[in-house]
Design a protein around this nucleic acid. Sequence first.
DNA 1: CTGCTAGATAGTAATGATTCCTAAAAAAGA
DNA 2: TCTTTTTTAGGAATCATTACTATCTAGCAG
Lengths: 143, 143
Amino acid sequence: MNISLETIRQRFKDQGLKSTPQRTAIYKALVETTSHPTAEDLYRHVSQDYPMISQNTVYYTLGVLQQARLIREVNVGHERARYDGNLSPHHHLICHDCQSIVDVMDKKLNEISFPTGLPTGFEITDYQVEFRGYCKRCRTQKA
Amino acid sequence: MNISLETIRQRFKDQGLKSTPQRTAIYKALVETTSHPTAEDLYRHVSQDYPMISQNTVYYTLGVLQQARLIREVNVGHERARYDGNLSPHHHLICHDCQSIVDVMDKKLNEISFPTGLPTGFEITDYQVEFRGYCKRCRTQKA
DNA sequence: CTGCTAGATAGTAATGATTCCTAAAAAAGA
DNA sequence: TCTTTTTTAGGAATCATTACTATCTAGCAG
């Protein structure tokens, strides 16, 4: 889905973040994709419009956006970090082979009741379901 | 919970793995803890009995055991990999601050129905629920 | 509109977990 | 016991990420 520059600037302002062209481009790219890119993916993408951008800026910006709770980190294996600009509650489908991540929107999954018998004092803020399996492409490749 | 050398040797044999003292020690340590240790944690632990063991062996062994599906990798953030020797279906409670992982055993969570409207051809093999929040210790430290 | 200041950027160097490479050692079956 | 195959240990290499730092710029104040 598309996001306007206006909206981005407002969100940054709300979180006390300066709006720079690089930062805006990185955030826009992340919100407008569902591919859960790595820092390098984003670096390559944003480089098309800002050839002088450094990888450092991408890492720094992702850190800032994450702290401001405008984006989230997603993890698959212990490989490089991947990011998600979609903050609405949703879940993930991950392929064991190609590590692709697909969003799962299913209302029922948002209504799981918290487990009982937790360690005393633990306060749950949110949860996420990770479904693992094999995507069509990887299955046909094996056959 | 405790595991006997017998059992370990049998499991290795079933998977066509040689039984070496180092390998046995690493696997035993992993099965007998619920702390989801890193490779380095295991290295330090096993070093007490095998001072000459190399980190390399730990990494190599974890890879072998994972391929044999005797252990699993757990991930919290994009930090170093953590491992779990408990293969029975269970879920995790993770502290945003200290990154500690606690096992959650809750039968209801094992009966979640798979979502509908998935990409065609995707075959789900398993799933896991990750609850995030703040543990008692980190909450009191902030207050 | 202009100047000021905190924060952002880019480039390079450093870090640290993990992997690669290789020779020597050890397991397991014959 | 012998042989083959795998495992181990150690050091070097890799690669994502972070640290450092000088320059630059956004955004506010005047």
